[in-house]
Computed example of a mutant assay.
Amino acid sequence: MYKTQAEALEFLKAFVPHLDNTPDNREIVLCIPFTDLAMMSMNLHGSRVRIGAQNVHWAECGAFTGEISGAMLTELGVRYVVVGHSERRQYFGETDVTVNLRLKAAQKAGLIPIFCVGETKQQRDADETEALIFHQLQVGLEGVDLSQLVIAYEPIWAIGTGETCEAKEANRVIGLIRGQLSYSNVPIQYGGSVKPDNIDTIMAETEIDGVLVGGASLESESFSRIINYSESP
């Protein structure tokens, strides 16, 4: 929940020039607050930057005050939507079942969902990481088209804490996630205190296809450094 429309526009003016030398095979998606979607979509039309939303409801319409439907997002040029982010689970009652409903609704509307999974510090310390994530995948992906999906592994204990999951451990868990999928080409990202000073190491790992960036995406210099990571750290 950052950036008014005016602040978002200022961000774009500073950010877009950094993409001149970004390799063509890197996809950039900005998942922004609902109030910024229309303005950002208009200003990024024709550019290589895609727009994503931060949530979507499972119904096409109805008495769901405060929610937003897939059709409302696609009308604004939105291509992606984050589903099941740890903060939605922690603060707003999101469950594996409602995540599944949102994933299917997003795809029905033509959106590509970014499906978040991950464990808390307590769950990791109790050696429950694999069992928890496998359960999230089993329930969340029922009836979901894996060819129109992105998965993000976000260890909750590494989000906004400054504590980053070691790249090799993130790679190991993402490899386990991929092993649970019937379609192995699903892009799987890592998210959790991704910063300019660790992006090269993260992206050197073989199983990690990209990153879901939090705080470091709010400043154009740091975010562009992450996007323009070195392939030879």
Rank of each mutant, 00 (worst) to 15 (best):
I226P: 15
K13S: 12
A8M: 10
I151R: 09
D36Q: 07
P23R: 06
E163P: 12
S220Y: 13
K195S: 08
I208K: 15
T65P: 01
N55K: 11
G46Q: 02
Y229T: 14
I177S: 14
I156H: 15
E169Y: 08
R102L: 04
T35L: 03
T129G: 01
E231P: 06
S69I: 03
V211T: 12
P113K: 11
S182T: 15
H45N: 07
R50Q: 10
P196Y: 01
E219A: 08
A38F: 02
F64E: 15
G46M: 01
F15L: 01
L76I: 12
M40I: 05
T65M: 07
V186K: 01
G160S: 11
V99C: 13
L101K: 14
P233A: 15
E60W: 00
S147T: 00
L37V: 14
S147V: 01
L73D: 01
K104S: 10
V211E: 15
E205W: 03
D24R: 07
E60A: 06
D36M: 07
S147P: 04
T161M: 11
A106E: 13
F134R: 07
V82G: 00
F34E: 15
I28W: 04
D20M: 13
Q5C: 07
G175Y: 05
E142V: 05
Y153R: 07
T164P: 00
G84K: 11
Q5H: 02
R50Y: 07
A105R: 15
M203T: 07
G215E: 09
S222C: 11
S47H: 00
T95C: 08
V83H: 04
V97I: 13
D209A: 04
D20N: 10
F34P: 05
T164F: 05
I199N: 03
R26S: 02
E119D: 05
C165L: 04
T74H: 01
T164W: 05
L137C: 08
A126G: 08
F115M: 14
Y153P: 07
Q138Y: 04
G140N: 06
A204P: 00
K13M: 11
Q90A: 12
V139A: 10
L101D: 13
T65W: 03
K168M: 09
N25R: 14
C31M: 10
T74E: 05
R102Q: 14
E207S: 05
S230I: 08
V49N: 11
L37Q: 09
V186F: 03
A8N: 09
N25K: 10
A53D: 11
Q189M: 13
A6C: 01
G84Q: 10
V78H: 06
L176W: 04
R88I: 08
L73Q: 02
R124E: 08
D96F: 04
M42L: 08
R178F: 04
V194I: 13
R50E: 09
I174L: 00
